[in-house]
Nucleic acid binder design. Structure first.
Lengths: 206, 206
DNA sequence: GTCTATACTGAGATAGAC
DNA sequence: GTCTATCTCAGTATAGAC
C-alpha cells in the first residue's frame, strides 16, 4: 500500500463520511489529499471502487471481531439455545469499540447503508457475516418463522444505518453530543424488544 | 397545475422511485415525459425542488390522514394514557392504505429517507406531523425519559425508511412478493416491542 | 509501475430568442 | 410560457513523462 493510496483512502473515508458519497467529488478528495486525479483511477479504477476499498480496509476487522465474539458465545452455549441479547451484543459491540478510536469510519459505514448506494458493496463485504448472524438469530428465536426473522433483521439494519450516519433530524437530538457507543446501547435495547415482540396477525384490523 | 407540470411530476415520481434520485437524470425524465429540459427548471427551479414538489403532492394527504387518525384516538382516550399500538397504527395505517392504491409513491418516500438526500425535504414536510406524534408517544410511554423517546422514534424512522424502499438485500427476501401492507404490519409489531423495551443501562458491560 | 496532463462525455443549470 | 444554445463541473479515459 503506497503512501498515495493511503492518503486517498484516508481523505475519501473522511469526506464521504462527512458529506455523503454523492456530495463528495473526486476532485475535492484529490485536492485535500494532494494527489492527482488520475492516480485515483489508476489505483482504484472508479469512484465506486474507491469507496469499496475504503470500506474493505476498515470493515474487515469489525466483521472479524463480530465473528470471533459469536464463536465464543456459541461455544459457551453448546447445544443449548442462544440469548438474543448476546447475539445482538456480538454484532454491535465491535462496532461500538471501533467507534471509540475512529469516529470517521462509523460515519462512512452509515453512509454506505443509508445512501442506498451500491447494495453490491454491502452485499460483498457484509453478507458472509450476516449469514453467520442469521443462523445465530434463528437459534436464539427458534419459534419465529423464517420470513419474520429475515424481516426483523432487515428492520435492524435499517435502524442501525439511520442511527450511524450523523445526528438525528429530530429537533431534540440535533445538538446532542455525539456519543456513538451510548447510541448503540440504546439501539441494542430497542432491537432486543423488537426481536422478542409477538408476531403481527396477518390482515389485522383494529 | 398545467399538463406539463403533471407529466413531469408523474414521471419523476415513477423513475426516482424505481431507480433512486442520483441515478435518475433530468434528461431521462424529460425524455419519458415528452417535455423540454428547460421546462423543468422553469416550473420547479432545480432537480431537488422537483423532488420536493413530487413529495409534497402525495405526502400531504398521508400526513393529514395520520393527524386525523391521531385526533380520533386522542379524543377517545380523553385524559387517560394512550396505547402505543394505537399510536403506531395512526402513523402506519395511512401509509399502508395509500400503498394499496399507489405503489410508486411509497417507493419514492423510501428513497427520500434512505438516499440520505435532503434532510430538508423530510424536515419541511414531515416535521409538523412528527411533532404531533412525538407528543402522542410521550403520552403512551410516560415513564420513558425524553432523550430515550427521541432516539426510539429515530430508530423507528430508520427501520421504516429501509423497509419502504425496495426489496431487502437479505437473500431470503429478495424474491419475496412485494406486499407492502404486510411488510408494514410486521414492522409495526417489531417497533411495538422496541418501544416497550426496558432502557439500556449506561455503560453496561456484559 | 507510478503518476501527470489533458481531453471526452454527460450531468444540472441558465440566458436569451421566440 | 417555451425552447435552443451554452456554461460549468462531474466522472472517466488515455497518452506519455518519470
Amino acid at each position: 500500500m503506497t503512501e498515495t493510496q493511503e492518503k486517498i483512502l484516508d481523505t475519501a473515508e473522511r469526506l464521504i463520511g462527512e458529506q455523503g458519497y454523492a456530495a463528495t467529488s473526486l476532485r475535492q478528495i484529490i485536492a485535500e489529499a494532494g494527489v492527482n486525479l488520475a492516480a485515483v483511477h489508476y489505483h482504484f479504477g472508479s469512484k465506486e471502487d474507491l469507496l469499496d476499498a475504503a470500506v474493505v480496509r476498515k470493515a474487515g476487522p469489525v466483521n472479524e471481531a463480530r465473528i470471533a465474539a459469536l464463536d465464543r458465545v456459541e461455544q459457551e452455549a453448546g447445544e443449548g439455545q442462544l440469548d438474543i441479547d448476546d447475539v445482538l451484543d456480538c454484532f454491535f459491540r465491535p462496532m461500538a469499540d471501533v467507534t471509540r478510536r475512529n469516529q470517521k469510519f462509523v460515519r462512512l459505514m452509515g453512509r454506505i447503508y443509508s445512501e442506498g448506494l451500491m447494495p453490491q458493496i454491502v452485499q460483498k463485504h457484509f453478507q458472509p457475516t450476516m449469514g453467520r448472524f442469521l443462523a445465530a438469530f434463528r437459534r436464539a428465536l427458534p419459534e419465529l418463522p423464517e420470513e419474520e426473522l429475515l424481516w426483523r433483521v432487515h428492520f435492524m439494519v435499517g435502524a442501525m444505518a439511520h442511527t450511524m450516519c450523523g445526528p438525528s433530524s429530530l429537533p431534540g437530538l440535533m445538538d446532542a453530543p455525539v456519543d456513538i457507543p451510548r447510541r448503540i446501547e440504546r439501539l441494542q435495547a430497542f432491537l432486543s424488544g423488537g426481536f422478542r415482540a409477538p408476531i403481527a396477525a396477518a390482515g389485522e384490523k383494529k
